[in-house]
Structures are given as structure tokens and as C-alpha cells.
């Protein structure tokens, strides 16, 4: 029960502002294009920065928009990668 509660809390967390995502599988720029394209389609996304060598994606989202971790996981998965971690910048 506690596990279910913890999981539901985890997935209900929402993110806005500047996010840092750790994405696995980012091997080449050509493949990462799909991720950039899908992230830029999100409402409120102002900037996407991808670092292949660090496996990091920085996302700047307008404060009036928020997305859950599950939202971001789905977008990253449909782009052919795996989201390992997401946190607000500065945390």
C-alpha cells in the first residue's frame, strides 16, 4: 500500500520551469533530432538543449505549463530513448 502511494505520488509530480533530464541511449545527433522535435511540440516549451556527451537534456518550459514525469517519459520513449531522471534546475 505504501509502495502504491509512493508510486502514485512520484507519477503525480509535475514539472515546469527549467528542467534537467537524464536520457539514456543518446548516441548520435541524427537520432536525437526526433527527441528535440517532440519536446518542441509541447506547449510552453521555450528551449531544448541536448548534450550527447553528457546524456543530458535541458528543457525550459513556461511557468504556466506543467508536465508530469509520465508525460516526459512517454515523449522520450516515443523518441527511442529512456528517461532515467528528471529534476528542476538547481535542485
Amino acid at each position: 500500500m505504501k509502495l502504491l502511494l509512493a508510486l502514485s505520488l512520484l507519477f503525480s509530480l509535475t514539472f515546469g520551469g527549467e528542467l534537467i533530464m537524464r536520457v539514456d541511449g543518446l548516441a548520435c545527433a541524427f537520432c536525437a533530432y526526433g527527441l528535440e522535435k517532440k519536446l518542441k511540440k509541447l506547449k510552453g516549451v521555450k528551449r531544448v538543449e541536448i548534450s550527447l556527451n553528457r546524456g543530458i537534456v535541458r528543457l525550459e518550459i513556461d511557468q504556466s505549463f506543467e508536465y508530469t514525469r509520465e508525460d516526459l517519459e512517454n515523449i522520450v520513449r516515443e523518441s527511442g530513448f529512456v528517461l532515467r531522471e528528471v529534476r528542476r534546475s538547481g535542485e
Partner: peptide, 9 residues
């Protein structure tokens, strides 16, 4: 089948 880690698939 697929397996990921940082910078590798």
C-alpha cells in the same frame, strides 16, 4: 529487444 545506458543503445 533494446538496452540503454548513457550514450549507448
Amino acid at each position: 529487444w533494446k538496452d540503454y545506458e548513457r550514450g549507448r543503445v
